[in-house]
């Protein structure tokens, strides 16, 4: 792993020492470098939560959006200018709690956006409430008697909802995560990367000490990412062994490719000077 300060801003990250967000930050910079992207080649939409603070630390076109709404905002950007490399990032609370509906619909659309979930299984910025990926029984400030609900499984959900690139990364494996981001960004269609991101302050039971002995890489196994059924089977595995890598990858027409209104040129570059609506008016008056 190397650092590429060209993507830094003047601000130093304010995350807690040891936060898994540092790993994602470095992996993103490595991925951008490997893809040969300049700062102005990258458009990123950020959510609310500790992950949203990333908007201050990455020198790219950044949109700090509403809680839970990163994907609709990113979709708007991609449809207005499909030449842009669009990424969205948010936490598990943002993307899988309040934003869960948007997540499923963006998977259905298969729009060419790369979505990174900072999955720390807790609300960190509000100092430790349960999140949609907190395990059953998890005790927190809002669930002192333990969580009743089952956790959301973002990997399985993405696969069955129609995302065409579904992977899981780990903040403790930065080079591996960077490679997933590179492949996700190269992929044409909606790519989802769920990142195991330790929150050492508010969810210490899921720290590096928990993940390090458990994670293993799918590319070291016989798994074929085209194998839908095995991908779902692997997505359900989260115990002594936790798979990271690409679960599922397929090709399907992207949303913007299927839009008859969108041509080679993005809408934002369309010339509206010479548009005439006279024919339409004539039709209406006929």
């Amino acid at each position: 792993m190397k650092d590429y300060p060209v993507y830094n801003t003047y601000q130093t990250p304010s995350w807690c020492p040891g936060c898994g967000n540092f790993g994602i930050w470095y992996a993103l910079k490595n991925a951008f470098h490997e893809l040969g992207l300049n700062n102005h080649d990258i458009t990123m939409v950020f959510g609310i939560g500790c992950s949203g603070n990333l908007s201050n630390f990455l020198k790219v076109y950044g949109f700090h959006s509403i809680h839970g709404r990163t994907l609709p905002v990113a979709t708007g950007i991609k449809l207005a200018n499909h030449k842009l490399n669009v990424l969205a990032t948010s936490g598990d609370g943002d993307g899988l709690g309040i934003g869960l509906g948007h997540f499923i619909h963006t998977c259905r659309r298969n729009i060419d956006i790369t979505y990174i979930i900072h999955d720390n299984r807790v609300y960190g910025l509000t100092t430790g409430q349960t999140s949609p990926t907190s395990p059953k029984g998890f005790s927190s400030k809002s669930t002192p008697f333990g969580v009743i609900e089952l956790p959301v499984n973002p990997v399985a959900l993405a696969i069955i909802s129609g995302a065409t690139f579904v992977a899981r990364g780990y903040s403790g494996e930065i080079d591996h995560l960077a490679s997933l981001i590179v492949q996700g960004m190269k992929h044409k269609g909606f790519s989802v990367i769920d990142v195991l991101q330790p929150c050492v302050t508010f969810n210490p039971s899921y720290s590096y000490a928990f993940y390090n002995p458990r994670v293993y890489k799918l590319e070291d196994t016989a798994h074929n990412p085209q194998d839908y059924e095995n991908a779902i089977k692997l997505a359900m595995e989260f115990n002594d062994k936790i798979p990271i890598g690409i679960f599922y990858k397929t090709e399907r027409e992207t949303y913007e490719q299927a839009c008859i209104e969108l041509g080679e040129n993005p809408l934002s570059e369309d010339d509206i000077e010479n548009i005439s609506i006279e024919d339409i008016i004539d039709d209406l008056l006929a």
């Binding site: 609370g93 709690g97 309040i98 609300y123 910025l125 509000t126 100092t127 409430q129 400030k141 809002s142």
Partner: peptide, 8 residues
């Protein structure tokens, strides 16, 4: 409710 600062 839902977590949000400063009412947590």
């Amino acid at each position: 409710g839902y977590p949000i600062t400063p009412q947590n």
